[in-house]
């Protein structure tokens, strides 16, 4: 079977499913569905189905067809019971009768359920016991508001210790770092990246790498890359070059992992 034919047959199955669904969901007459014809159709298409979707569609069609057959059975069963009556005749009767007549008729066949509610001494006693043991609502629903603290004075050192404020402004810190770079470079004009960034501890190395990235971004220094030798140099500028901010910048990712820091440390110790 060609793809086009398969698509047409799938659509036909979808229509069958929709028709069967309408019987169940919208109360369409179940005998309006030609069950024999649909079964023959499903039987004819079934050998052609290959994919999971096609087989699922087929199973769905069979399932909905089964529900239509059940609806047909229910219809016959209902018809054979004493409750069957011509719906149009009943509707006509309902329309013709006034409210009072309908209510009078209904009360003749209506036997309401009798049910009583009553409190007893044992249940009252239990309820009183529960009441006595119940904690007052003011205790159960305690609202823990925010702690009130008296306002006081603090020092700059305390704020620095709490890392709320920095000892120096970031600019000051960056310029001090730039000065350190220029001193380390000396007359060589450049220094290996790891020789400048590397420190005794890994966390300090990260801090230095972080500041170095700002040195380069803000125009205090630049990078010199030698990809064949896998070397990166930092070259400080004598003056900060602010015009670099207007030019198109390129990002250079540099890994500062713990393994690399360990490797650098071992090489340095050698």
């Amino acid at each position: 079977m060609s793809t086009k034919e398969k698509k047409l047959n799938s659509e036909r199955l979808q229509r069958v499913i929709e028709l069967c669904k309408s019987v169940e969901e919208r109360g369409v007459d179940p005998f309006a569905v030609d069950v024999d014809d649909i079964i023959a159709t499903l039987h004819k298409f079934f050998p052609e189905w290959e994919s999971t979707e096609e087989l699922t569609l087929d199973a769905e069609a069979v399932q909905y067809l089964a529900s239509v057959i059940q609806n047909q059975g229910d219809w016959v069963k209902h018809r054979s019971t004493s409750l069957y009556t011509d719906p149009f005749l009943l509707e006509e009767k309902i329309q013709r009768l006034c409210k009072e007549e309908l209510a009078t008729l209904f009360t003749k066949v209506w036997n309401p359920i009798i049910e009583l509610e009553q409190i007893s001494i044992p249940s009252l006693s239990e309820a009183l016991k529960y009441w006595n043991e119940l904690i007052p609502i003011s205790e159960r629903w305690q609202n823990f508001g925010p702690m009130q603290v008296e306002a006081g004075a603090t020092t700059l050192e305390e704020l620095v210790r709490l890392k709320i404020m920095a000892e120096r402004t970031f600019r000051e810190e960056l310029e001090a770092f730039w000065k350190e770079l220029k001193q380390k470079v000396g007359e060589n004009e450049k220094i290996l990246y790891w020789d400048f960034v590397g420190a005794d501890t890994y966390s300090e190395t990260i801090d230095r790498a972080y500041l170095t990235s700002f040195l380069i971004t803000y125009g205090y220094a630049t990078l010199e890359l030698h990809p064949l030798e896998e070397e990166i140099f930092i070259k400080p500028f004598t003056e900060m070059k602010s015009e670099l901010a207007d030019k198109m910048m390129v990002s250079v990712p540099i890994s500062v992992s713990h393994e690399e820091w360990m490797r650098w440390k071992e090489e340095k110790q050698r």
């Binding site: 005749l89 013709r96 007549e101 008729l105 066949v109």
Partner: peptide, 20 residues
């Protein structure tokens, strides 16, 4: 509750028995 309280057959018979 309808199944418990209402005699459905009797209701239908009464309705059909009324004059149109």
């Amino acid at each position: 509750r309808t199944r418990a309280e209402v005699d459905q057959k009797a209701l239908v018979d009464l309705l059909l028995g009324t004059e149109s």
